[in-house]
């Protein structure tokens, strides 16, 4: 019983932390740079599908897989997601802020179409299965398997967290905040301000793609329905509730929201009759939507706000 609980706990944390890494990526874009990305689902999907294509064994009815090592898949995932972000960023970052939101929204929809319809590459609605899982040799022992994966994901999360903290508190992060906080500073940097924004956008999306790949390999199976706009929405809720601008807040928000999501989901599963499950799931999203909007109005800095004080005057007013 206790072992089951630990196994479930490890499984839960792996999923929550993979969302946490997505949140860290989003935090580079929103928290540090003020870029609103509505296409999180798209960038996560790019990462997941890239890695899945590269690492799955060769299949007859579909293009690939290439049976490459997992780590190549993960690195490529980050790279391809970053590339897609560079494409969007170059076009929209010179324009009004909401155009980035609209365009990322568009790319998420387009990617959803592609994974759904490019059946020879993505498997269409059936998705891609048999994605190699790390420590698959341990699969016979669920506890060991989940704990091994948990330690791996913990290590990766810690690594990404540490690397981003270093970047954010270094000269690069200072420039980003200056651009976000101060129009004059942004203007004095001129063209460079756009380059910095683009770097932040690409880096954030690459982290999201990387996290998408990790998720895919942990679950072992991906399908288009995993990458609907609801995911974007959940990740946003995680970051806003945890506290934008703060990496610890991003991770805390991910664990908290995922816990809430899992608990309410399980509770609804027990209480609500099977034929009303879909409706109950819709209600879950209604509450998160209201929660997100309420946090924006009441406590815009989230549970753990940004550590720096530059923005206090602007936000508290």
């Amino acid at each position: 019983m206790i072992l089951d609980l630990i196994t479930y706990g490890a499984f839960f944390l792996v999923t929550a932390l993979s969302y946490g890494i997505i949140c860290l990526g989003l935090n580079v874009q929103w928290g540090q740079t003020g870029l609103f990305n509505v296409g999180v689902a798209g960038f996560v999907a790019i990462g997941a599908y890239t890695s899945a294509l590269l690492t799955t064994p060769d299949v007859v009815e579909r293009f690939g897989g290439f049976d490459l090592p997992i780590w190549i898949g993960w690195i490529s995932a980050a790279f391809v997601s970053g590339l897609a972000a560079a494409f969007i960023g170059v076009i929209t970052l010179r324009l009004r802020a909401d155009y980035l939101a609209i365009t990322t929204f568009g790319i998420a929809i387009t990617i959803q179409l592609v994974v759904l319809n490019a059946i020879t590459i993505t498997g269409g609605p059936f998705g891609i299965g048999f994605i190699p899982r790390p420590f698959s040799g341990l699969q016979e022992h669920p506890l060991l398997f989940n704990l091994a994966n948990l330690s791996l994901v913990c290590g990766i999360t810690g690594g990404v967290y540490y690397a981003l903290e270093r970047l954010i508190h270094g000269p690069w992060g200072r420039v980003l905040r200056a651009i976000r906080e101060d129009e004059a500073a942004a203007a004095s940097l001129g063209k460079n301000a756009k380059v910095f924004r683009l770097q932040a956008f690409v880096l954030g999306s690459a982290v999201m793609g990387f996290a998408g790949a990790i998720q895919a390999h942990f679950i072992g199976f991906i399908a288009p329905e995993n990458y609907l706009s609801a995911i974007t929405f959940q990740v946003w809720a995680m970051l806003i509730i945890g506290g934008s601008g703060n990496n610890r807040g991003a991770l805390l928000g991910a664990i908290l929201v995922w816990a809430l999501w899992s608990i309410t989901g399980a509770a609804l599963g027990l209480i609500v009759p099977a034929e009303y499950q879909a409706r109950a799931a819709a209600l879950q999203i209604v509450f998160i939507g209201i929660g997100l909007a309420a946090i924006l109005v009441v406590r815009p800095r989230g549970l753990l706000g940004e550590v720096t004080k530059v923005s206090r005057v602007l936000i508290d007013r």
Binding site: S229, W236, A237, I285, F287, G289, I290, L292, A293, L296
Partner: peptide, 8 residues
Amino acid sequence: ASFGASMA
């Protein structure tokens, strides 16, 4: 906020 409202 409009994105959250749209979802809800």
